[in-house]
Structures are given as C-alpha cells and as structure tokens.
Design a binder for these strands. Structure first.
Length: 734
DNA sequence: AGTCAGCGAGTTTTT
DNA sequence: CTCGCTGACT
C-alpha cells in the first residue's frame, strides 16, 4: 500500500504525476528513493500493468535496494516491474536480440583487464610504438568515442588528415574486429550495440517501447550521451519518462557523464513537469550549511537551497595533522571515542579521494582491533586466481573467447610455452577461426608437432568440462571439477606460502559466491553467473548488517548515508586532486571536485569530521600540502578547528593497546584484501549444529585453527562432510 | 620453458 | 612505492 500521508507536498506531487515527461530535481537526502518507490506503487494501484514499468538505476546496489523496497510496498505484481542498471538492461536485451547484429547469444563481457590485453595484442599486431600509443590512452579514446555513439568507421571519417587520429581509428577498427571474433563485448559495447540494434531494427525497438511504457531513470545527472540516446529511443513513443537527479551531485564527468542531459531536459522534452525536492531528511542543519557553503561556489548550476526541519546538531570538526600517519591514527582513535557516545562501528564511514589512501587507515584499524570493510580497490574478480578460474568457466561457455583461452592454456603449467601459443594463434588468425578450434585441430598444424600431446591434454580437459556442463551438473560441482582436474588448487597447496594461502581463501570465497548465486537465482545458468560476475561490483554486495567501519572513495559513497562521516585528506593536490590543476579546463574540473566534496558532506547524518595532513608520502616521496580550499568554503561559525592539540592527547589518553587474539595482523594491502575478516567471533564449537547458506544444516565435527582463520569441518545432513574456512562460510549456530 | 634480477615508468574517480 | 617489461641465465 502506498503511504501518501507520509510524503510532503512536493513528494506527493511527484508520486501522482505518472503521465508525460517529469523531471524531479532531488537534493541530497530529500527522500528520492521513497518517491520513486511510492510512484511505482501508485502507478500499479492506478491500474498500470507492472509489466510496463522499467526503473533504471546507476548501480546494482541501488537497483537491489529499489527492488526490495518496491517489493515491500507493492505486494502483488511487483516482480513484473523491471528494476535494472543500464548495463544489465542492455545485456538482457542483447541476449535475446544480438544475433541480428551477427553476434552469438553466448557473448562474453570484457572487463578493463581484458580490454587491456586485447589492446596490447592490437598494438603489437599493428607495430605501433606503445610509447606513443599507450594502451590506456587508446582505450580511453575509444571509450569516449563509444560514449558518443561514434563507430570505428565514423571515427575514421572524423579523423580527417590528422595522422594520429587516423592511427587511432585503425586501432579502433582492429580492436572491434578482435572483440567480434572473440564474440565479446566491452562495457561500452553493451550500450552501443543496444542503441545500434534499435536504430537498425525499428520493429525491435517498438517491441521494447511497448514493453516499457513507463520509464524511470535515477541519478540522471550521471548519464552520458549514449545512455541519453537509449532512453530517448525507449521513451520516444509514449514519453512517460521520469528522470530523477541532482546536478550538484554529478561526479562522473570523467566517464563521459553529460550534465546537460539534466540541465536541458526540459528543452528535449517539451511540456516537462518539473518538481523540486529541497527538504532534506538526512542531515543536521550544520552539516547542510557546510554542504551549501561549499557547493555555492559553483557556477552554472540550478540554484537551489536545501533545508531541514532538524536542529543544528553538532558543529563540523576539522583537524590538520602533522602527517598522513597521524591523520590515520587519530581518526581511528576518534572512531573509538565515538563508541562511548553509543555510536557503533557500522555507523562510521571514512571517505577519501583515491583508493591509495586506504592503506594507512587499514593498518591503523587493524592495530586498534577495529572491524572494518574496504569497498573498492582491487576488485575481487580482478585477482589473478579468480580471473584464471573464471576464464575456465568462460571458455566452457564461449569457446570463441581467445583471450581466455590464452590466459588459461598454460595455467597451471602444462608445458605449453609462449612460442607454441604464438604459432597456434597465427594459424587461427590465418584461417579465421577461434584459437580454441585451432587447438582442437592441432595435428593439422605442422609446426606444432612437438607440443601436440600437451595441447591435446588441454583440449580434452575443456571437452570433459563441457560435457559435464551439458549433462546438467550444478555449477558448484562443475567448479569443483575445474579445481580438481586442472590441479589448480593442488599447485597452490604445494606452494605453501602465505600468498598461496590467501589465494586459496579467495578461491573458497569464489566457490561460496557461486553457491550463493545458484541458490538465489531463479534459473541458475553458467551465462547468468558470468553475467553477474561481470556486472556486479564489490560495493553492490556490501552487506548492510555487519557492524564494521566502512572505508571507501567519495565516488563509491554516492547514494549511501552514515551517521558519522570522516572525510580525510582534505588537501590541495589530494582533494581537489593534483591532476585537475594541470588540466586544460581547470575551472570546470575544480567544480566537479567540489561537487564530489558536496556529495561527501551530504553523506553524513549526524557528525562530520574533516581532516588534512601537513605532509604525506605520495608515490615514495614526501609532499607538503596546503589545506584544501573546500575547507575554507565552509562557514566559520559552524566549524570547530582542532589543531595540533591532538598530539598531546595521543600521549596521555592513548587507549591501551587491544589484545590481539585470532586477529589477522598481516599487512592489509598484502594481496589487496578487500575485506580483512577475523575469525574471532565464532560462536560455535565441535558438536554444535550450524546452518550454511547453501548446504543447509549440519554438525561441526572439527575446528582447526589454521593461521589467521579457522578451518571448520561440518557433517551436513544433506550433502555430507565439507571443510571450509570459518570467515567465508558464515555459519550460523542453531 | 621457466625464473629472476634490474630497470623504467606511472599512478583519480568506475558501470 | 609498485607494477610490468626485458633480457640473461638455468
């Protein structure tokens, strides 16, 4: 049931305006999600078939959040509403339709890493000097083109007589050819190909226009041109398009977000109804004043003033420390002090500009025995062992994926060297066939006579695994077979180093993730699993319930809120980033940084702590930084400046060093753990009954302390004896 | 084929 | 500081 009486007038107006174009300018914390979910609920109550409703969000986390809130409020029929990110929407469409564009429906999705590998090959094949043409630059250029819906041939035409751009055009073409022959799409292609599909096949477009008669787009200020095009295509027929956004929170310009999509929405869609949500329900008055004070310095924004009915609350606190080390130590100490005020760890977030800044905080948190989770950084799925194993899955699914084949053909070592792979790749290239096919015909390649036996071993392996898949084995079993038959685990176990141990743990976690997927998906399939892995970032799976301090970048924090926020590293050259000072359009980029600052400040509900360091180590050398300009933009009367008094504090009031027991004290960024989990809070022992998310109930038969974790052996009622690491298994005592 | 030392280069933010 | 590449050696 929708709750109209809990909404303010503006929110109500937004909920009730279901027909025609609607622009909702929703300030930070103005109850945006509530409006969207209630609007969906109202539409359904009003007789609109939920089947015709599509809500697009920016992140999977936001999508999941909206999904559950819609389910809660709507009741019957809510499952027919599509809630999706741009990228997963496109994947779902393309899986059905991409054969029209001459791709196979089992296409794989390449991440940044894969893109880089492909580009490396392209550069090599074209004999380009990679000093002049670094992969990064090329990929950036191509990505920018795709965001503008500029194809390789269009790019070539535009290049004119500019030699460099002509070269890039050739790279673009070759890169696309390579992806095509691997039956792969990169992130940008997902959008690009969908828009292309709709352009070439108006009848297909019309089907989707009929399907999605009511569209809603969240975080509209972050959409780029191709997303704009996609929305325009879909909305063209019925024009029931509701976009929600806040130009002050546009922080993805570097990724092609076009702020004019929202600023010019009214021109693009005549008769747009505009609704402003300016009452903030999240933060205290002082926090809002700080935010307004900062963002006020930006030009070219839709002027608005957030206000709150809440009291002023505490003042914002600012500290300048002597060093980055001290900043981290003091921040952790401040967090511990908050506990005395009844704040819990889960209420606290530490936000910084770059991922590299997380390290020192991790170290100090570990030493202080404060539980925390790190969001972002090196993606779990980007780690070597995880990528390797996923490549096995990908090759089973899509044999055209040359990149994956190359990655795993000699992992673990099978004695197939670079030279042999090169020969096979050449043969495949000349005969226009996927590398894997060439390998299957290895006896026809004379130059590979010597390596033939070894290669056959590999192809037989792939064949066996494919048979297993087609015989309908569950994915968990298939994955276990990969581990067993390739000897991947075995090799790591033999190594016995701490690194290898960490990798084994990661593999265990991957196994759990697969089990989780299989458990929760409606129709689990290998392609579904791979899709989820490709599109779901770590932040999306951030569980809400555990009581840990959160560490993340300001970008990752968008859309979230915390009672207490620490914004650290507020220094010129750090935030605003040193990069923007040297760019061509300094002013614009500073404004983007300022919006980022605004986003950070408005994450805080009750308490906001800002800090800077006089000196910090950056890439090996010491830097002296001035206090960020953003600090001085906050009105004096609401800020408490605490100077160096801190140092004395530390000496006299320093908390007793916590006892370290069962605590993982290894260097945090070692292997770039994204969550350092402790096994301290095991509440079960041998003989207890426990529940596992996948395996059900069972009895603990052994508990062995293995270094920094426990290895638990459980005899499950359904599936028998399993060994697992306590920190990953998340067993519940019953 | 595989390993390892040594050197040079690059580091914002991410679906 | 840390990655990634190169080239020499086992």
């Amino acid at each position: 049931m929708i709750q109209l009486d809990t909404l303010n007038d503006m929110q109500k107006e937004a909920v009730l305006s279901t027909e025609g174009p609607l622009l909702i300018l929703a300030g930070a914390g103005s109850g945006k999600t509530r409006v969207i979910t209630n609007r969906i609920a109202y539409m359904i109550e009003d007789g609109i078939n939920p089947y015709h409703i599509l809500a697009i969000t920016f992140t999977n986390k936001a999508a999941a959040e909206m999904r559950s809130r819609v389910d809660n409020i709507v009741g019957f029929g809510s499952e027919s509403v599509w809630v999706s990110t741009f990228h997963s929407l496109c994947v779902r469409i393309l899986r059905r339709e991409i054969e029209l564009l001459d791709y196979d429906t089992h296409f794989t999705i390449y991440d940044a890493d894969d893109q880089k590998s492909v580009m490396k090959q392209v550069v090599k094949r074209m004999n380009l000097d990679n000093k002049m043409y670094p992969e990064r630059t090329l990929l950036n250029e191509i990505s920018k083109a795709k965001e503008q819906f500029i194809s390789a041939s269009a790019y070539a035409k535009e290049a004119g007589t500019d030699f460099r751009r002509q070269q890039i055009a050739k790279v673009y073409e070759e890169y696309q050819r390579q992806l095509k022959s691997s039956n792969a799409l990169d992130f940008d292609d997902l959008l690009f190909k969908t828009v292309e599909l709709f352009q070439f096949y108006p009848d297909v477009l019309e089907r989707y226009q009929e399907r999605f008669q009511y569209l809603m787009v969240d975080e509209y200020q972050d959409t780029n041109h191709i997303q704009f095009l996609l929305i325009r295509q879909l909305a063209q027929k019925y024009k029931n398009l509701c976009v929600v956004g806040d130009d002050d929170q546009s922080i993805y310009r570097f990724r092609g977000a076009n702020i004019y999509n929202i600023l010019n929405f009214e021109e693009e869609y005549p008769d747009t109804k505009v609704i402003r949500l300016e009452q903030n329900y999240r933060s205290t008055g002082n926090i809002l004043k700080a935010a307004n004070g900062v963002i006020h310095n930006n030009k070219g924004r839709k002027d608005k003033a957030l206000w709150t009915g809440q009291g002023e609350g505490e003042k914002v606190v600012f500290h300048q420390y002597d060093s980055d080390y001290q900043e981290a130590e003091q921040t952790v100490w401040n967090i511990r002090k908050l506990l005395e005020d009844g704040i819990s760890y889960g209420d606290v977030a530490v936000l910084y500009r770059t991922n590299a800044q997380s390290r020192m905080f991790e170290e100090r948190l570990i030493l202080a025995n404060v539980p925390y989770k790190l969001v972002g950084g090196v993606n779990f799925y980007a780690r070597k062992e995880i990528k390797d194993l996923i490549c096995y899955l990908k090759v089973i699914e899509n044999g055209s994926d040359d990149l994956c084949v190359q990655r795993i053909i000699n992992v673990p070592k099978r004695g197939i060297g670079a030279a042999s792979i090169e020969k096979a790749a050449l043969f495949a290239y000349q005969n226009q066939m996927p590398l894997l096919d060439a390998l299957f015909h290895v006896e026809e390649i004379p130059s590979l006579a010597r390596a033939a036996t070894k290669i056959k071993g590999f192809t037989r392996l792939v064949e066996e695994l494919r048979e297993e898949l087609s015989s309908g084995e569950p994915l968990t079993i298939l994955f276990q077979s990969i581990l067993d038959t390739t000897g991947y685990l075995e090799e790591l176990e033999l190594e016995g180093t701490p690194e290898a141990e960490a990798r084994i743990e990661n593999i265990e976690e991957l196994k759990n993730k697969i089990a989780q997927y299989e458990d929760s998906a409606e129709e689990p399939s290998l392609s579904g699993l791979l899709e989820e892995i490709a599109l779901v970032a770590d932040i999306d799976s951030m569980s809400e319930d555990d009581d840990k301090v959160v560490l993340m970048t300001l970008h990752s924090a968008k859309g979230l809120e915390f009672p207490c926020v620490f914004m650290v590293g507020l220094e010129e050259g750090v935030f605003p980033s040193g990069m923007v000072m040297y760019s061509e359009n300094v002013e614009e980029e500073i404004e983007e940084e300022r919006r980022l600052c605004y986003v950070g400040i408005t994450r805080a509900k009750k308490r906001l702590f800002l800090s800077a360091a006089r000196q910090r180590m950056t890439r090996g050398n010491l830097q002296m930084n001035a206090i960020s300009r953003f600090v001085s933009e906050i009105p004096d009367e609401i800020i408490t400046v605490a100077g160096n008094a801190v140092k004395r504090d530390m000496e006299t009031k320093r908390p007793v060093k916590p006892q370290i027991s069962n605590v993982y004290t290894a260097k945090p960024s070692y292997g770039k753990e994204f969550v350092v989990t402790r096994a301290t809070d095991i509440d079960y022992g041998v003989g207890d009954r426990v529940r596992h998310i996948k395996f059900g109930e069972g009895e603990v038969t052994a508990l062995v302390s293995g270094g920094r974790d426990y290895e638990v052996t459980v005899n499950f009622d359904r599936v028998g004896i399993k060994k697992m690491f306590a920190s990953f298994a998340k067993l519940q005592k019953i």
